[in-house]
Each structure stands twice: as C-alpha cells, then as structure tokens.
C-alpha cells in the first residue's frame, strides 16, 4: 500500500473541515427547527415535514443541481450573496452548503427523537416556576436533548464525510480546494493504476468513520450514565 500523497492529505483535511463546518452550521438550525416541529403548533406542519425530509429521499445529484440553480451566478439567491461579497460556487463553502442540506433531515430527526421524549409536564413546571419560553428552551429542553444532539451531530458529520453527488455539482472536484476524500477516490478509480491509492483513502475513510462512531457510542453511554 502506497503512502498518502500531499493531495490525499489535502483531501482528508478538506473532508474533515467541510464535515465539521457543515455540522457546526447545521446544529443551531437543526435544534431550533426540531423545537418548532416538536413543541410548536402551526398550520402546514405536514407540508414543512415533507419538505425538510425531501433531501433524505432525493438523489443528492438533484439537490446539487437545485443548489447550483439557486446559488450560481444567475441563481435566485445570488443577489443575496453578492450583497455580502461572498462567492460560494466551486469553493469549499459550497461543499459545506451541500453537506448541510443533505444532512439536515438526519440532524433534525435525531434531535426530535430526544425532544419528543421530554415530558411536557417538565416544560409546564419550568414555566410556572418563572422561566419564560426562551429560558425553558435553554435550561430544560436543550440539556434534555443532549443525547439527540450528540447522535445528530455524529450522524451529520459522518454523512458529510461521505457526501459526493451534491458536492461534485456545486463545489466541483478541484484538488487542494474542494476535493474531499470521496471525490479523490472517484478520481483515482477512474484513472488507470489508481487502485492502491484509492484503497489507501478507503482505509482512511473507514478509520475516520470508526472513530466517529466510537466517539458517538462513548458520549451516548456517558450521558446515559449521568442521567
């Protein structure tokens, strides 16, 4: 097995960076969204539910293409980004957006699972003890959703590491800039003689996944013990 090249190391670095950033960006939105879906009462909840879960069932390539339409130079959202002087498409930030959109439903699902198990009477207790809605959210709901937040974040991180279809469309496959592990493996496999290099990166991908899953298990067990 050949050692990893500089480009491979770049791919690993970019993968981890994109996955971390995607998880960090998604977490607050996922939390607020899970809260609204669990405790909120509003019209059209079912419609929102379907839309938010769409990325789970759509081919990632479709999401990538839709993102390209939205964020591209003539996209619907491009004026917004121009306003802030941000260029997204074909940068690592686009890969973050792609991962975030694809992984969002996983994050929301995990957090909702934990939030759904919270006894509503605890929320009532906190309100009658003088805590406002926001205070209750941070002092009761957030700590009791920890296990879901941990599970959602690790799932999201792992899913981001594997993101391929949407990423290649909005971020491209530029070594050292937007090339993540899956994209690098794709490159190796499609060029002659790249099998062993592909295999080394596969080993790296497996190792990272195993570490993430162990970390998830450890935190889960730790939280369970504390409760």
């Amino acid at each position: 097995m050949s050692l990893l090249t500089a480009a491979d190391l770049d791919a690993i670095r970019i993968s981890v960076k994109v996955a971390l950033a995607a998880t960090a960006v998604t977490l607050p939105f996922g939390f607020v969204f899970a809260y609204l879906m669990t405790f909120g009462r509003f019209r059209g909840k079912a419609v929102v539910e379907v839309f938010i879960n769409l990325p789970l069932t759509l081919p990632p390539v479709v999401i990538g293409y839709l993102l390209l339409l939205a964020l591209g130079s003539h996209g619907w959202l491009s004026p917004l980004f121009e306003l802030f002087g941000i260029r997204l498409i074909f940068t690592w930030k686009a890969a973050v957006v792609a991962s975030a959109v694809v992984g969002f439903p996983l994050m929301v699902r995990s957090i909702r699972l934990a939030m759904g198990a919270i006894d509503h009477q605890l929320v009532h207790a906190s309100r009658t003890l003088g805590a406002g809605k926001l205070d209750t959210l941070f002092s009761v709901i957030l700590p009791l959703s920890r296990s879901g937040i941990v599970a959602g974040s690790s799932l999201m991180f792992a899913r981001s590491l594997g993101e391929f279809g949407a990423t290649i469309i909005v971020a491209g496959n530029v070594p050292g800039v937007t090339q993540t592990i899956p994209l690098a493996i794709y490159d190796y496999v499609s060029s002659p003689g790249g099998e062993s290099a592909a295999l080394s990166l596969c080993v790296v991908a497996i190792s990272i996944s195993v570490v993430v899953l162990f970390f998830h298990e450890y935190l889960g067990a730790h939280l369970a013990r504390r409760d």
Partner: peptide
C-alpha cells in the same frame, strides 16, 4: 402561581 404535579416532574438533568 407555582404548581405541584401528580408526578413530581423534577428536572432529571
């Protein structure tokens, strides 16, 4: 107005 519920509803964390 503080409440005491049927099941104590203590904060488990």
């Amino acid at each position: 107005i503080a409440m005491v519920f049927q099941h104590a509803s203590l904060f488990p964390h």
